[in-house]
Design a binder for these strands. Sequence first.
DNA 1: TTGTACGCGTTATCAT
DNA 2: ATGATAACGCGTACAA
Lengths: 342, 342
Amino acid sequence: MPMERGSRTASVKDVAAAAGVSLGTVSNVLNRPDRVSLTTRVRVERAMSELGFVRNESARSLRAGQSHTLGYVMLDAGNPFFTDVAQGIEEAAQAADMSLFLCNSGNRAEREATYLDHLQQRRVQGVLVTPVDPDSPTLDAIVSRGTPLVIVDRTRRNVDFCTVSVDDRRGGRIAVEHLIDRGHTRIAFVGGPLSIGQVADRYAGAQDAWSEAGLRDEDLIVVPCAALTVAEGRAAGAQLAGVPKHRRPTAAFCANDLIALGLLQHASAQGWRVPGDLAIVGYDDIEFAEAAAVPLTSVRQPRHELGQTAATLVLDEATNPAHGHEQVVFTPTLIARSSTLD
Amino acid sequence: MPMERGSRTASVKDVAAAAGVSLGTVSNVLNRPDRVSLTTRVRVERAMSELGFVRNESARSLRAGQSHTLGYVMLDAGNPFFTDVAQGIEEAAQAADMSLFLCNSGNRAEREATYLDHLQQRRVQGVLVTPVDPDSPTLDAIVSRGTPLVIVDRTRRNVDFCTVSVDDRRGGRIAVEHLIDRGHTRIAFVGGPLSIGQVADRYAGAQDAWSEAGLRDEDLIVVPCAALTVAEGRAAGAQLAGVPKHRRPTAAFCANDLIALGLLQHASAQGWRVPGDLAIVGYDDIEFAEAAAVPLTSVRQPRHELGQTAATLVLDEATNPAHGHEQVVFTPTLIARSSTLD
DNA sequence: TTGTACGCGTTATCAT
DNA sequence: ATGATAACGCGTACAA
């Protein structure tokens, strides 16, 4: 129970004085305990706890030229997907005895840039980021300064850094293959805007599966959304409700779970049976997909592993001189639940 | 586009040399631009951008004795409640030109302690924490070292720091008052374990409302849960289903939204109408409460404001010598939706 | 085994 | 308006 009060926090110098040893000895106790005799060591350690000594990380970092820290700028802390990724990163960081500095850009490029700058100022050993725009030159600036960088859940062409992502096109494909297997021959793709790479890829995958099965283009209907939100999912439901029953799709593949939940909500309100009147597939398999009134079939991405791998890659780049950049692509999995199974 | 490569990152000294001025002048350009002539200033600024100069936060912190940083150790990053609180904190921090170091204890006391230690080592200006155990002496240790501390969403007796929380007892009361207003005379409290202060308070509030309305004790039935999870909510539903219809409660007040969603799911599966056969009130008003198949009535806590206030308080303690500790208690609000309204 | 001295990058003070 | 210098706390090479 240290009783320090009012005064400035104790430094190694104070500890040395209190223990009656030199400053270097205290440092040795901290960093090379073997080089110091047992008796002096315990004496120093007692002094440390009596003074409530706490190492000064700033001084250590300054001395070392870098801090024992990784930074992750996530796209949206409100999205469970990214918090799971962050947990994966953190686990790997912790295993390597590093701290993780978590930042949330909230989808705003400006804040992202600010945070990236902060991380540089802190001389973090590596930066992970799920960028608002993967093509932003800000990212290249970091690389050119020599800071290890890994992009998470995004890619771009001509990268000179590591990248960890999930195969969205394949995800779209397996979702639609599942619906085809269940006998659907007229379905909707609910999602947008297609300017988002992920959405476009998922749609492309859906088309792949559809045409391979020899089904007609006009039976894969696009119900556009302005954003990947629950509200947009509801709106999409209203749009589907406007279609005469005999021409209405019997299933919907949604670009993410939020849209799927919105659609499911609308379906409930309309009294549609799910999957009887409308089967629904979501994407992401967020925690609440399983918790929905009708548990939602969804495409799961290995979020945790995504984060772990990304962290491992930055750490490798930071420590291994022979590091070579990698583009890791994970494969998503379909989790089938009641919303597509009778 | 700085072209630095391989070499060490540039320092003020390098900038000074490149610009042909002294080190102090560079510092002035950085910190008191008014004290330096326009011509030299632009010259220095050019040198900085050419060298890709980035301030070294470690050195600044060392010099200043503290870093421009706040730390928040949250209880569970997977819980949207805490990410919202974190966003509130961050907003306030940003307004005060501070960075926020976000940590996630994941409900583990050990990790919490580790993070608190890290924050101390970084000499953060203030610590915010939603502790696993509000009575832990670790917290007092921080206070006794002189670091401003605020506890978020928890309280305890005999505090010598600031505290920001929400009146859970009142929350329980308004939830049950709402059900009484809707004509229910036999309801269930679904939640647990009661060893969690929040849960106990919400239950106590429910009892307050119940007895004040002159209803009988035995008509407020407790359906215990082992945890505040969706799965436990489902299990509670199964338990309710075992009760003969004429003795079954007509409404349930759940200790949080996860339980409520689980219960709602079970109700759907059973074919119960909500709220016809069973009205449901949740607690927290998480984003998915509104997105549920039957939008959920819930007790909303001012999460964002909670965070903002907490941050304001630490900042005050850190900067205002006349700071006095406060125990701020917010009042929750009932958000009525379809799950209790016909 | 222990002690001394220097430097990391920045800022503030003091002189010029 | 600008330059020189000391100090922040720590780690380490080197001397004792």
